[in-house]
Write a protein that binds this DNA or RNA. Structure first.
Lengths: 223, 223
DNA sequence: TCTTTCTTCAAACGATTGTTTAAATAGCCT
DNA sequence: AGGCTATTTAAACAATCGTTTGAAGAAAGA
């Protein structure tokens, strides 16, 4: 009643969004351990207890942030796969088209927010460099179904391949993708002079070729 | 002077070794964050301050443990590369031989201690799933020179290749290797029934083929 | 205006962390 | 035996963490 600040109280939803954005930045640069409720609250210009009020717990807050970043990408992955299936009519998809649908959407998301401080690429990478318990939750929550979809498509495209080979090499492909994303930051430091930060999409394109050919080399046609 | 326990005092070096082993186990299953000085000391049947006495700090302790695990592997990598060079006389090495020298020693180390609880594979994987600052130290301390050696060898074997292509695809190969090692645990859970724990060496062999072919596909012969 | 609901706040709680201190103990050399 | 050094120990320190509490503040419906 006394002074009444100009911007008195935020909407509540605005505060929540601000907290999520701050969580994103911190998580991208320092991982789950680097996201402390106090720092998040302070950077989001609100209170420690307010963060708990909106999310209930730290883990819930981080998971909600990750969901908001990954789900759009997963939707795009499915969409690209469907588009490719339409484009190739009833013919089986070339393997590289399947991997393009899996990998390319990540690159696009990077391009989209090239001005943004916290790259989506770091978010995804971090998601797979966290403690096992936390990671399993993400794996099952956001990637369980998706893997089934892509695995099925690979079977369709390689009907004569040994199923065990398919599984192994699919996992090699996914692991390569994740490993590459996770190592992205370090690649910047290492290959000095040979790297410019706008070349992320070039890396993605190379990754698709790399993974697709690695995959095909590993598939032994049965009998 | 009173009761004098049977095993009074350990050698000091024995205590240090016990601390390192405990650090290894904890780090393999929970990463740096899971290594707490108190737990390490207790599991190593010594005191909290004793751990500090021997290593000075937690980070120094973990780094010394990692050094003890990684250096033998790196030595073997160099040795394999030299052996391959002898075997192929003055002819340039096939790329797959180079990647075999890089990757296979890891698999051998896994086989060697197949009874051991804490797999070396988890150690290496964890080494690349830790906070960036910690990771950079490991990168520079244990992998800086090694990368130079292998990169040079790849240049020798692909003299006509675009140097930029070589760099990119070498990094893709290394990232794939690390990603695969890091994802190894999760692969066990995911591909239920299609995986048996003795098949690690099979995975390594597949990885070598995968990476080698991915690498070669990514190299465009300059003009 | 009064009540209700949503939101924010300062403060504290309880637990855990890496690190330090200072005293006690054991082995070894003279 | 006595002194020296290396090692181990219990206890405390200082910092940080996620979470909870209880009250204050603002908006909206009656």
């Amino acid at each position: 009643m006394v002074c009444s600040s100009i911007l008195t109280r935020a909407n509540g939803q605005e505060t929540k969004a601000r907290l999520l954005r701050t969580t994103e930045t911190l998580f991208a640069s320092k991982g789950v351990a680097g996201v402390t409720m106090r720092v998040v609250a302070k950077k989001a210009k609100t209170n420690l207890a307010s963060a708990h009020y909106h999310f209930g717990s730290k883990e819930a807050m981080v998971l909600e942030m990750i969901k908001s970043k990954i789900e759009p990408i997963n939707l795009k992955r499915r969409k690209r796969l469907d588009e490719a299936k339409v484009k190739f009519a009833d013919k089986p998809l070339p393997n590289i088209e399947i991997f393009r649908a899996l990998i390319h959407p990540v690159g696009e998301e990077v391009e989209k927010q090239i001005t943004n401080q916290n790259g989506i690429i770091e978010i995804i990478a971090r998601s797979f460099t966290e403690p096992a318990e936390f990671l399993d939750k993400i794996q099952k929550r956001f990637f369980g179904e998706l893997s089934q979809v892509f695995m099925t498509e690979l079977k369709n495209s390689n009907p004569d391949a040994n199923e065990e080979d398919l599984y192994w090499n699919y996992h090699l492909a996914v692991s390569s993708m994740l490993g590459t994303l996770a190592q992205h930051r370090r690649m910047i430091d290492f290959s000095v002079g040979k790297y410019n930060e706008n070349a992320v999409s070039a890396m993605i394109d190379r990754l698709i070729i790399f993974v697709s050919n690695g995959f095909e080399a590993g598939i032994q046609i049965k009998q």
